[in-house]
């Protein structure tokens, strides 16, 4: 893992902990925006620009503003202290969960974090080798598009994408119902 990767991992972890610990909701939202900045950079560094773009558009733009409008319409708890007290059982649980997750991802070749030779996905010897290799090789001749991610989303897994799109629509309808509005005002 390169210097940029290590520094960025530190950045993401600090912002995540600060978001959880800050007592003021607005401050937590602002620091969460910084978290999503770091996360988008992280995804991009791991050569997943599609995910990075999604995190940039949704995480930094839309989520921050929807949360902001929400606390404008509800209440914002005030407190003298900057940080909340640490809930010891919850903290222990989170640390344990993170430790378990770190052990499970041990198969990821971390030295390939940043470098010219980084395989895009499914490096030789990993379980995903045959599947990803198949998609990367045959996407263009089968579908005629060069971005394999779009091809997987819209062609190979089209029905899943249909489900996702309907879920987004259903979320909008649910908000209309919950707020007792008769229409998409």
């Amino acid at each position: 893992m390169s210097a940029v990767g290590f520094a960025l991992a530190g950045f993401v972890i600090i912002t995540a902990i600060a978001t959880a610990m800050l007592r003021d909701t607005l401050a937590a939202i602002i620091v969460f925006a910084a978290y999503s900045l770091g996360m988008a950079l992280f995804y991009t560094l791991l050569l997943a620009p599609d995910v990075g773009l999604t995190e940039a558009a949704i995480g930094a733009g839309v989520t921050t503003i929807l949360l902001l409008v929400t606390i404008a319409k509800t209440t914002r708890p005030r407190a003298e202290k900057v940080f909340t007290a640490i809930n010891c059982p919850a903290a222990t649980l989170s640390v344990g969960l993170v430790a378990v997750l770190l052990f499970t991802v041990g198969s990821i070749p971390v030295e390939n974090f940043l470098g010219e030779a980084t395989p895009v996905t499914g490096a030789a010897g990993t379980p995903g080798e045959s599947v990803t290799g198949h998609y990367l090789q045959s996407t263009y001749e089968q579908t005629g598009v060069t971005n394999a991610v779009t091809a997987v989303l819209a062609a190979y897994r089209g029905f899943d994408t249909f489900g996702e799109a309907v879920v987004v629509f259903a979320a909008g309808v649910a908000v209309v119902v919950v707020l007792h509005r008769g229409e998409f005002l």
Binding site: A7, G10, I14, A18, I30, A34
Partner: peptide, 8 residues
Amino acid sequence: IAVLYRAV
């Protein structure tokens, strides 16, 4: 990371 101090 240094500027993060001011954000927090």
